[in-house]
Simulated scan of single mutants.
Amino acid sequence: MPRKHPAARIALAALLLAGPATVAAAGTVHAVPAPAAAVRLAAVGLDDPHKKDIAMQLVSSAENSSLDWKAQYKYIEDIKDGRGYTAGIIGFCSGTGDMLELVEHYTDLKPGNVLAKYLPALRKVNGTESHAGLGSAFERDWATAAKDTVFQQAQNDERDRVYFNPSVSQGKADGLRALGQFVYYDAIVMHGPGTSSDSFGGIRKAAMKKARTPAQGGDETTYLKAFLEARKVVMKQEEAHADTSRVDTAQTVFLNAKNFDLNPPLKWKVYGDSYAINS
């Protein structure tokens, strides 16, 4: 599952701007027209329901070795990456704050739910790899909660709020079509929506030093290649991310095929396993 940097927390307001935008500096979005990107932005974005489902399948192939992303609501384990538990459809981590926010949201939607009693423990372990106050009882209750459609909706809500919506919004602001928006989404899922050098913001900043975004008048292929190369540099710095096949034999395959709209059929490999989405 996704392994986000513990410090990768960021204010999302700047990333949630609607409509075309141009980027004056890495991490700074100004809501002004971007005529050069108008044609690209007219295409169907990753927020189209079918494209979004494709995005979830692509991420699940890398994180769960399965295209059945809806089977992952119940997923929970400690993958020994220093971030405590990793769980759910997007890899919410007990050590990075997003699991805490998820359970808080679930409790707002359904007070007294089976996970609400763990909120004090989740607050204490936030920022650490500790399981104190959680353990096997928490794992069992997570699996129970995963059968609750309210908890499933809470996971969907937090996925969208923290990861999906900001990445799509930023991708559109940068003049990227569905493939580029997915490239951003997958990076935010793994590295977190932060501004440090090893988070999404840092990767984007490094890419923008090498190439201009389409919104800045740059070539879409050139920019995305720069972004993926910058991401691989970060991935190789951590053992848990060192296998870059989700970039090399998946996203780069789509980019080389000029499939900027991420249209099926799609064929790719992750960690040596082959996958396909035919429609």
Rank of each mutant, 00 (worst) to 15 (best):
M1P: 10
H5K: 15
P6H: 06
A7P: 03
A14I: 08
T28D: 06
T28H: 06
A31G: 11
P35R: 04
V39I: 12
A43G: 07
L46Y: 00
D47A: 12
H50N: 06
K52N: 09
D53S: 13
A55H: 05
N64K: 15
L67G: 02
D68M: 05
K80Y: 12
D81E: 12
G82W: 03
R83M: 03
R83F: 01
I90H: 12
F92N: 04
C93H: 11
C93E: 15
T96R: 02
G97E: 14
D98W: 10
M99H: 12
E101N: 14
V103P: 04
V103D: 06
E104S: 05
D108Q: 14
K110N: 10
K110C: 03
P111I: 01
P111R: 08
A121C: 08
V125R: 00
T128Y: 01
A137F: 08
F138I: 02
E139N: 13
W142R: 11
T144M: 11
K147E: 15
K147W: 09
D148L: 02
V150Q: 08
F151S: 02
R159G: 01
R161T: 13
R161Q: 14
Y163L: 08
P166G: 07
P166V: 06
V168N: 06
G171M: 10
A173N: 06
A173K: 04
L179H: 07
L179I: 04
A187D: 09
H191W: 13
G192N: 09
D198T: 15
S199Y: 03
R204Q: 15
R204M: 11
A206V: 10
K209I: 07
Q216L: 09
Q216W: 03
D219H: 07
T221Q: 08
T222A: 11
T222N: 10
T222Y: 01
Y223A: 00
V234P: 03
M235S: 02
Q237T: 15
E239L: 02
A240P: 01
A242C: 07
A250I: 00
F254Y: 13
L262P: 04
N263C: 03
P264D: 13
L266W: 07
L266H: 10
V270S: 04
Y271R: 14
D273L: 10
